[in-house]
Structure formats: C-alpha cells, structure tokens
Amino acid sequence: MDNEQLTHETRSFVAHQFDDLEQQKEAGTLGMWAFLATEILFFGGMFMAYFVYRFSYPQVFAAASQYMDVALGGVNTGVLLVSSLTMALAVHAAQEGKRKQIILFLIITMVFGTVFLVIKGVEYHHKFVEHLVPGFDFHYEGAEPGKSEIYFILYFIMTGFHALHLIIGIGVLTVIAVMTARGRFTKEYYTPVEISGLYWHFIDIVWIFLYPLLYLIHVHK
C-alpha cells in the first residue's frame, strides 16, 4: 500500500488519502472556502428577499426599523469585531506554535461570541415585550402592519440564522481548544485552527451587513 511510503515524522498528522502534510493543509483550507461560498449563497437568499421588500416598501421598512435598538446593535457589532480580532490573534499564535496563547485567545473569542448572543437575547426579549414577534404575538401600532410584519419576519429569520451560526461557531471553537490542549497542533500543522477562524470571520462579515441594513435604515428623524 502506498501509505507505507509516507515519511515517518509527519505520519501521525497525515490522513491516509493524502500524500503529504502540504496537500492535506491545502485541501482543508480550500474545502472551507468552498463551504463559505455555499454559506454566502445561503445568506444571499435571505438578503435577496430583504432587498426585494426594502425596494418595494421603503417607507414601511423605515418606520418599522425605528423599533430596533441602534445602541445595542452597535455595541454588538463592536463585540463581534473584537471577537474577530482575537480569533485572528489565536491563528497568529498557532502560526508561532504558542499553545497557551491559542487557547487563551480562543476562549476570549468564545466569551465575546457569548456576549453577542446575550445582547441579542435581550433585544429579542424587548421585541417579545413589545408584541413584535410575527406568527406568535404581533400587534403593530404604526401604519401598514402587514408589510411591517414582513420586516420583522426578515429581522428574526436573518438574525436567527446568524445567531445559529454563531452558536455552531462557539461549538467548533470549543472542539478546537480541546484539540489544542491535547497537543494536536504544531507550528507546522494548525489548519483546523485556521479554517475554523475563517468560519468565525465569515459570521462577523454577515453581521457587518445585517447591522446597517436592519438597524440603520432611518435613524435620522
């Protein structure tokens, strides 16, 4: 079998289907990028719906977006940006083979991810109290309650799918942190740290678009 031709020192890291570590690293990274392309189109479908309705009902969207908490949303954007920074630093630590730093930065990243989710939860709670949850409890005071409901459906679905991705991201980082602690990565091989970082940054990018599109439609009065 061809397996036996692999050099001994890298063998513990290289899966049987790959010739060498380099091939395995490149495949992993490329696989994640292909997956992110899928994710772009997954969120793209929702953004498409958003643009169609924002174009069709501009005033309704402007009025309905008044119910968003610009401050909390802004803070949350900052929180995610910080988490992206610490994620980048975790990958940087992996490049230098500093195991403790990787774990530290991963934990900080997860903490900020959790803070984001908590703030998001507070916002959802506000909507619940204000009877603005479509399909569950929706009493809208302003004009065009139906079309406004579309805005709120989009808000909940888009931020909901985003939050779901964040929860998955925290799960992934937990696994990566445990793997790091068990010494599964070296200066030469840290691709899983790197590609979970890619996933995390992608979640950040989605929010970078969600924030202005959902919160900042009409804050000038």
Binding site: T38, E39, L41, F42, F43, G44, G45, M46, A49, Y53, S56, Y57, P134, G135, F136, F138, E144, P145, G146, K147, E149, I150, I153, L154, I157, F161
Partner: peptide, 26 residues
Amino acid sequence: PVIAVTLALVGFERITGVGIFDPNIG
C-alpha cells in the same frame, strides 16, 4: 444553499402562519 434557505422559509411560513411569501400581508 439557495433552495435550502427558500424551503426553510416556506416551512417557517407554514408553521407560524405568516411569512415573507404571504400575499395576505404584502
């Protein structure tokens, strides 16, 4: 992924009774 999210939206609309394809609300 586009059909996945689209069918998720249909499922959501069916379960909650309102949705972004619902002509009753625009």
